[in-house]
Design a protein around this nucleic acid. Structure first.
Lengths: 195, 195
DNA sequence: CGCGACGTTGATTTGCCTCAACGATTGTGG
DNA sequence: CCACAATCGTTGAGGCAAATCAACGTCGCG
């Protein structure tokens, strides 16, 4: 129990950057959290399961959909201190259409939707925190959608490089290509034009 | 004053579909709302201005970005009972990069970010409501982004037709083409292939 | 009436994909 | 520790979905 309270500290710090949180509230939250280790290439969520929300303590995960031709399309990367889930499944409690797996050995804390909703009544600050990160995620998604419509593959790649410089050398090119919506071969060609 | 309370009724009904709202809270909210009429082709928001959030009482609006070649990319349609804004600008209070204008004669209620944040402290139910609609918008945006990466133009058009059947006959084809991310010419060609 | 926005259609171009072959690197079991 | 497979990135030839450009008919509206 105290173990979780300790491990979830980065999460509480994150919450405190947006709102205030008393030690009692931290305990209430911690009571609903569990931790989980996920090794590289292991799944946190398989298509068809019901998702829980995961906060990354260590490592890096990704969520992606697989289309009818078997191609992966990455929706999100989640490095340390980010949340990741299939939001549709998490909220509706229906089977997910996304997969989530670990790009490196990772550790997360998990929160079910039921526990999350209970906590929103117990700890209003938590609801505020999730309201804020939902707003921010929405802004990022708007930007990404517009970029997908307005920019060329090369422009999107360069923008990715400046927006997430820390991920460039961490992630395989294949994953970056999938995130910006092009084939790995074409990304390779883009990069070879003096990069 | 009572006028706003009356006009905002559809908004209060919408909130009550997600949480509970007392008449006193409705009054508190109404005190921060203003109404505005926007005629067809008139702007609610110009690129560079700071956005407020708008709830549509009548008509239909759109938000869109203009790229460096002068092409419009529609981010959102807002028919009756939907919110629309440039979320980035509204939240950060910085100049917007989006435009919002009316596709037909419309009327909206407006809420500034400051008033919204004040209300979150006064009326927790309102924060819950916005948390929920942010979550739902995010789900829709995820879906749309994946569709843009995984589906062909024709598939996206057919999906638009089944997802928003009421908009098909209301909106000019040009606007639909911009929303699904293709040229009006190509949409015309898609439609001419029987169906 | 005439102008401007809209939709259509065809010819041509292009950004990106597909497929295939090939090194380099990683990792895994004998 | 090595052999081998699997994964990754690169490169090239060819193909296709969608964009571009241009011309034309229609409609609503000042």
């Amino acid at each position: 129990m105290d173990d979780i309270l300790q491990k979830a500290r980065p999460l509480f710090e994150g919450i405190k950057r947006h709102t205030t949180l008393t030690p009692e509230c931290e305990k209430k939250i911690a009571a609903h959290l569990t931790t989980k280790v996920i090794r590289r290439r292991q799944y946190l969520l398989h298509e068809g399961q019901v998702a829980r929300a995961a906060f990354v303590l260590k490592g890096c995960l990704r969520s992606y959909s697989i289309d009818e031709n078997g191609f992966e399309h990455i929706l999100q990367f989640a490095p340390v201190n980010w949340w990741i889930t299939d939001l549709y499944s998490h909220i509706s409690q229906k089977p997910s259409s996304l997969n989530i797996d670990a790009l490196e050995d990772s550790e997360v804390v998990l929160l079910s939707r039921k526990d999350q909703l209970d906590l929103f009544d117990e700890v209003p600050a938590l609801e505020r925190y999730f309201r804020i990160i939902s707003e921010n995620s929405l802004i990022n998604n708007h930007r990404r959608l517009i970029d997908k419509m307005a920019l060329t593959a090369k422009e999107r790649y360069l923008k990715f490089c400046t927006t997430y410089p820390s991920l460039i050398n961490t992630l395989p090119q294949k994953q970056i290509a999938s995130y910006i919506g092009i084939t790995p071969e074409f990304l390779s060609k883009i990069r070879s034009e003096r990069g």
